[in-house]
């Protein structure tokens, strides 16, 4: 049995070789922008060099660098959505808003859920509709997409998402709901 060393060491000379691709992949799946992802990898290494004195050796080098990158990604999320700060809960650009009748809250006929391919689709089996989902997700406002990514990719608890993105819990639920309504409608429209 190999006993792992209790104290991890930092070897910044090897960072690029050992972690650049991993960190780049980590960033790109979360922010979907190659150039920005590159910049973040660079910033992460440079910030890591600055912070070496504070490395306690309790986590692995990779975990430590990933944590730095993660904070930078959250900064990107915040920046991307800061334009929406005051209007995030009014109507987002391109958002469909007339799902329900204003008077009684009933589904409006043209936007109501109908049976379509999604119902029999097994996401674990096929990936052929991923491109439709991707397209529809790209239409969502940056803040909403950030919420979804943190929630589904990183399985972050609601409290963490709210704290990191600086949104209230009630806004969080409104965002989840609206994002879902819009995604569903977009899928139905594109898929059929």
């Amino acid at each position: 049995m190999i006993i792992p060393p209790t104290d991890h060491q930092l070897e910044p000379k090897n960072w690029v070789k050992a972690y650049a691709d991993y960190l780049y992949m980590y960033a790109i799946t979360r922010i979907n922008d190659e150039e920005q992802a590159q910049d973040l990898v660079q910033e992460t290494f440079l910030a890591g060099l600055q912070a070496m004195g504070r490395f306690a050796g309790k986590s692995s080098e990779r975990t430590w660098l990933t944590a730095i990158l993660k904070n930078k990604i959250i900064d990107v999320y915040r920046k991307r959505s800061s334009g929406l700060k005051t209007q995030e809960l009014t109507n987002a650009e391109g958002e469909v808003t007339n799902f329900f009748d204003e008077a009684d809250g009933h589904w409006n006929k043209q936007n109501a859920p109908q049976h379509f391919g999604l119902d029999d689709y097994d996401p674990l089996q096929g990936k052929e509709f991923n491109h439709i989902l991707k397209k529809c997700m790209e239409k969502l406002p940056a803040l909403w997409l950030a919420v979804f990514t943190m929630k589904h990719l990183d399985d972050e608890p609601t409290d963490t998402v709210c704290a990191d993105l600086k949104i209230s819990a009630s806004n969080y639920w409104v965002i989840i709901h609206r994002a879902k309504l819009n995604l569903r409608a977009c899928l139905q429209k594109t898929w059929m």
Partner: peptide, 15 residues
């Protein structure tokens, strides 16, 4: 049903 399915799809797409 559809909302649950969408969650699954997003998870599988992202992961």
């Amino acid at each position: 049903k559809q909302s649950e399915k969408i969650n699954e799809m997003i998870k599988s797409l992202l992961k």
